[in-house]
């Protein structure tokens, strides 16, 4: 464990708790893409299948359990409890356009052709594009609530910090996982224009609005 990965994990935890808190407090999931949340749920479930079989540490097990629980709770709030506030007209990104190619790629490019490894690879690839419906929804509505932009900033920062963690681990532990690194770079690149808008607008107290 290194500081970059720890701060990354905490940023990730902050992001998902922030979103859950926003929906619960405002009793509304306006501006939130349910499709992205479904895909994140899929990411955690397919990645943490070894939750009960492969004990790494208390921290690892706890965080995995929290991520799965919070993802399920968020999906429940969006599609059940506060369904009336779900903006399905703007959450129109076709998930199958992401899940099918990612599923195919996971079969073709992986470290080991076993069920667990292919599911892990699928999870890594899916996570890199899971935010697209959310970014697409913001581009359609032209704006995002400030709390939602903080959520996105924390979520984007987590994988950016993981890239630093991988550089650190390569030099100090000789560890690297090309699949995770490439997918992590793609994932972080997708946030770049959002990061720019966040730093230039939200940091200056303005609302995040995309140039119409």
């Amino acid at each position: 464990m290194n500081i970059f990965r720890l701060v990354g994990d905490l940023s990730h935890l902050l992001a998902i708790l922030l979103l859950l808190w926003k929906i619960w407090k405002t009793r509304s999931c306006a501006g939130v893409s349910g499709k992205s949340q479904i895909m994140f749920g899929l990411v955690y479930i397919t990645r943490y299948l070894d939750l009960f079989t492969n004990f790494i540490s208390i921290y690892n097990t706890t965080m995995k359990a929290i991520f799965i629980a919070v993802a399920i709770a968020t999906i429940y709030l969006i599609y059940f409890k506060f369904k009336a506030t779900y903006d399905s007209n703007h959450d129109t990104f076709r998930m199958e356009f992401l899940i099918v190619p990612v599923g195919g790629l996971a079969f073709l490019v992986n470290h080991d052709f076993t069920a667990l490894e292919i599911l892990w690879t699928f999870s890594i690839y899916l996570e890199s594009v899971a935010i697209l419906p959310q970014l697409f929804m913001i581009s359609k509505t032209g704006e995002a609530e400030t709390i939602t932009s903080h959520y996105l900033f924390a979520l984007g920062s987590y994988r950016a910090l993981y890239i630093v963690n991988w550089v650190y681990r390569y030099y100090f532990e000789g560890f690297f996982d090309l699949i995770a690194i490439v997918a992590g770079c793609v994932q972080t690149i997708l946030y770049c224009d959002f990061f720019y808008l966040y730093v230039t607008k939200v940091m200056h107290g303005k609302k995040l609005s995309l140039p119409a």
Binding site: H111, D112, F175
Partner: peptide
């Protein structure tokens, strides 16, 4: 070559 270490990352 990739060193397949324990999947210890989240």
């Amino acid at each position: 070559s990739k060193i397949q270490m324990e999947k210890d990352e989240l």
